[in-house]
C-alpha cells in the first residue's frame, strides 16, 4: 500500500496538474461517433462518478484511459505519461491503473487467490509466497478470506466482484476504474460491493473513476459527478449541485428517470 500512501500526500503539491488529463478525446466505432470531444481532468485522490444513458459513451471513455479502446483524436495523459501507440507507454500506464468490469471477468480456471496473485507474479515477478501473503491481505480487506481457494464459479456474484476488486488492487495501482461494477449483480449483493468501494475511497485516498447509476453511492463518496450525453460531457459538479440544482435539461430529465 506504499504507492497509495505516497499518493495521499501528493495531491496538495500537484493538485492543479491532474493525474488523468483528457483533452478533446474523440472515438469512432466505424461511422458511429461515440466520443465527441471529451475534456476531463481528474486530480489525484479524487473520486469521480460518471453517469448517463446507455450508449452515451461513458464506458468507452474509461476504457480509453487504459487503452482497452484506442482514441482517434485528442490526447490522454495519465500520471505524466501520454497514451500513444508506444507499447511501453501502454504497459507503464496499465500498471498504474486497476480496472473492475461489469461482468467481473475473473479467470474461471484459477482460484480466487490465484486470480489475485497472477499479475503480481507474472508482471511484477513477485515471489509466490509474497504474492500470496499480499493476496490474502487483500481478500481480508474485501471481506472474503475464507473463499481464497474456491473457483469463481463457486462464488456468488457479489463475492466474485469483490475478488475482482482485490485482483485489481494487487498491482498497487494509483488509479481505479470501475465500469458499472454493480449492474450485473442481484439487488441484495450490490451493497457488499459498494461498501468495499466506499472503504477504498475513504481509507486509502485512491483516485477513482466509477461509471455507475448507484446514486446513493455517488452522493456519499463522489467528489464530482460527470454527466455524459451522446458522447459529450453535458454537465459536471459536486453531487450536491448535480442532485439539487442541475442546470442542463438533459441532466434533469435523466435524473428524474433514475431517481423516480
Amino acid at each position: 500500500m506504499n504507492a497509495s500512501q505516497t499518493d495521499a500526500a501528493a495531491p496538495a503539491a500537484d493538485a492543479t496538474d491532474g493525474i488523468i488529463i483528457a483533452r478533446d478525446v474523440h472515438k469512432w466505432f466505424g461511422q458511429l461517433h461515440v466520443l465527441r470531444g471529451i475534456d476531463l481532468t481528474v486530480k489525484a485522490g479524487e473520486v469521480v462518478v460518471i453517469f448517463g444513458a446507455s450508449g452515451s459513451g461513458k464506458s468507452t471513455f474509461i476504457r480509453t484511459i487504459n487503452r482497452l479502446e484506442e482514441h482517434q483524436r485528442g490526447e490522454i495523459i495519465v500520471d505524466g505519461i501520454e497514451l500513444t501507440n508506444d507499447i511501453r507507454n501502454i504497459a507503464a500506464i496499465r500498471s498504474e491503473i486497476g480496472m473492475v468490469f461489469q461482468s467481473f471477468n475473473l479467470f474461471p480456471h484459477l482460484t480466487a487467490l490465484e486470480n489475485i496473485t497472477l499479475a503480481p507474479r507474472k508482471v511484477r515477478k513477485s515471489a509466490k509466497a509474497d504474492a500470496e501473503a499480499a493476496g490474502m491481505k487483500l481478500l481480508t480487506r474485501v471481506g472474503i478470506p475464507e473463499q481464497a481457494h474456491k473457483f469463481p464459479a463457486q462464488l456468488s456474484g457479489g463475492q466474485q466482484q469483490r475478488v475482482a476488486i482485490a485482483r485489481a488492487l494487487a498491482m498497487q495501482p494509483k488509479i481505479m476504474l470501475f465500469d458499472e461494477p454493480t449492474s450485473a449483480l442481484d439487488p441484495e449483493m450490490i451493497s457488499e460491493v459498494l461498501d468495499v468501494m466506499k472503504g477504498l475511497a475513504s481509507e486509502t485516498g485512491m483516485t477513482m473513476i466509477c461509471v455507475t447509476h448507484e446514486m446513493g453511492f455517488a452522493r456519499a463518496v463522489a467528489n464530482r459527478m460527470v454527466f455524459f450525453d451522446h458522447g459529450q460531457i453535458v454537465e459536471q459538479g459536486p453531487p450536491s449541485q448535480i442532485f439539487e440544482a442541475p442546470t442542463h435539461e438533459r441532466t434533469k430529465q435523466f435524473l428524474s428517470q433514475i431517481l423516480h
Binding site: A91, M99, F101, F107, V123
Partner: peptide, 17 residues
C-alpha cells in the same frame, strides 16, 4: 470471451503472458 483478454491486459500482462 473477450473480457478475459481485456482483464489480463488491464492487469498489465503482455500478449504472450
Amino acid at each position: 470471451p473477450t473480457g478475459q483478454v481485456e482483464a489480463a491486459q488491464a492487469l498489465g500482462l503482455t500478449s504472450v503472458q
